[in-house]
Structures are given as structure tokens and as C-alpha cells.
């Protein structure tokens, strides 16, 4: 009866494009950058926080699921980085976590990284074809380890497409970051060098002038030497500051904001 409103939100344009998906990607291009680099012995993820401010209460302990808005622990062997609508991202992260546990329940093993990416992508694709619902306005980076293919890095977007990367970037300024990575990335890079590379690229693409724990989220996935199990480490703000100091990228006193009179 209401003919004007019965067009589904995801329909083809005459040129054969799906505008809703493109609009979703447009939303993501305004979101905080998330950068991932694959190394021989691990994967490194870094992200720029957009929601900052003195009044933000950051007193949570963090360290388990990730205390931030961008980087989340999906399972003991996969860390996820999100860019886009935070509410959509939270929903997808929750879905990923349940999918990982469901796999553990059925197979008594950690979910393989690509499989987790596929689960999410299958869901995201559904929202582009059925139901008359809008797509998720989120892109994700998956940094993970499984015994089959060792360390991996995947990127998925609102269309439900995913691909594996050695180094990639999502969110604002991702073009700049991507070309920087293309120049600087070397195969067989080690985690410690990957950390340096990530921080270098972040400092060039982030909006703020210098790196600091208020604007930066950081995570590393490695293999524990003794147990041979994947070890996910999402850095606490104090640890990020320590890392920046170690890399020589910490804020110096001259860069602090003007104090109020």
C-alpha cells in the first residue's frame, strides 16, 4: 500500500552500484585510523582514538577485552581493530566473540583467523541483500594466529568482502598510510621492527601533532615462547607511553597544550 516506502535500502543503482555500501564506506573514511602490520613472529595493530577529552573516564583496568573504542580482544588468538560507527562496531565485536566461542564449543580448538573473518563477512553480506536493513558502517582489521597458517592479517568492509594483507590501513587518511606502508614494508620483518614502522606511519597520518596514550591505542599478537600459544597484548595507556618513550616518539614538554591562565 505505501508504495513510496517499499524500496529496500539495499538495491542496485542503474549503473550497477550499491550506494548504501558506498555511503557506509564514506562514513568509515571519517573514522579514526586503524593500522595493521604482519611480521614473521607476530602482528601489530595501532589505532587513533577519535573520542577523547579531559572529561572522559578512562579508569577501567583494561588489558582483558581491551579498554578502548578501537581495538578489541575477539578471542585468545585474534585481536580486532574497528573503524566506523562505534555502535555498529560493538555489535560486530560481540558477534565475533560469540562466533569464536561457538567454534571452541564445537571443535575444542581456537577458531582459525580466516574462518572468523568469514563468519563476520557472511553476516555483513546478509545485511546488503536481505531484510531491508542498512549495512554495518564498520571496517575491521583482524590480527590473529592459528596453527594452520600462523600469523595473519585480514581486512573486511561493509560489503562483506575480505582479503588478507601483509600491511594495511582503514579509516581516515588510509590512502596516505597505505602508500607509506607500501614503500617501507619488507617481508620477513620482525615484530620489534613492525612496531617501529607502525608508530612511524601513525605519527605521519594521525591528526594530532605527536603521539600519546590519550589518542593512540596499540596491540601486539605474538607467540608465547614456552607454551607456544598465541599471546594477545592490548597495551594499557601507561604501557603505550612507555613504548613511545622507548621508541623516542614521546611528547616532549614543549609540545604540551597551553595551560590556562
Amino acid at each position: 500500500m505505501a508504495r513510496r516506502y517499499d524500496s529496500r535500502t539495499t538495491i542496485f543503482s542503474p549503473e550497477g552500484r550499491l550506494y548504501q555500501i558506498e555511503y557506509a564506506m564514506e562514513a568509515i573514511s571519517h573514522a579514526g585510523t586503524v593500522l595493521g602490520v604482519l611480521a614473521k613472529d607476530g602482528v601489530v595493530l595501532a589505532a587513533e582514538k577519535k573520542v577523547t577529552g579531559k572529561l572522559l573516564d578512562l579508569s577501567g583496568e583494561g588489558g582483558y577485552g581491551g579498554s578502548g573504542e578501537k581495538i578489541f580482544l575477539l578471542n585468545s588468538n585474534v585481536i580486532g581493530g574497528v573503524a566506523g560507527l562505534t555502535s555498529d562496531a560493538n555489535s560486530l565485536v560481540n558477534y565475533a566473540r560469540t562466533a569464536a566461542q561457538q567454534h571452541l564449543l564445537s571443535y575444542n580448538e581456537d577458531i582459525p583467523v580466516e574462518l572468523l573473518a568469514q563468519r563476520l563477512c557472511d553476516m555483513k553480506q546478509g545485511y546488503t541483500q536481505y531484510g531491508g536493513l542498512r549495512p554495518f558502517g564498520v571496517s575491521l582489521l583482524y590480527a590473529g594466529y592459528d596453527p594452520h597458517y600462523q600469523f595473519q592479517l585480514y581486512h573486511s568492509d561493509p560489503s562483506g568482502n575480505y582479503s588478507g594483507w601483509k600491511a594495511t590501513c582503514i579509516g581516515a587518511n588510509n590512502g596516505t598510510a597505505q602508500s607509506l606502508l607500501k614503500q617501507e614494508y619488507k617481508d620477513d620483518i620482525l615484530v620489534k621492527d613492525a612496531i617501529a614502522l607502525v608508530l612511524k606511519v601513525m605519527s605521519k597520518t594521525m591528526d594530532s601533532t605527536t603521539l600519546g596514550s590519550e589518542k593512540l591505542e596499540f596491540a601486539v599478537l605474538t607467540l608465547d615462547e614456552s607454551t607456544k600459544q598465541p599471546k594477545a597484548k592490548i597495551y594499557k595507556p601507561s604501557e603505550i607511553d612507555a613504548l613511545l618513550r622507548a621508541e623516542g616518539l614521546a611528547k616532549t614538554d614543549g609540545d604540551t597544550e597551553m595551560k590556562s591562565a
Binding site: G60, E61, G62, G63, Y64, G65, G66, S67, L73, L74, N75, S76, N94, R97, T98, Q101, Q102, L104, L105
Partner: peptide, 14 residues
């Protein structure tokens, strides 16, 4: 229980 505890730990961050 392992499933539920993992979900709890990851979400509650403790």
C-alpha cells in the same frame, strides 16, 4: 562453562 567464562572475561575485562 568455558564458553560462558571466556565471554564474561572478555566483556567484563576481569
Amino acid at each position: 562453562f568455558r564458553y560462558r567464562i571466556n565471554m564474561y572475561t572478555i566483556k567484563e575485562e576481569r
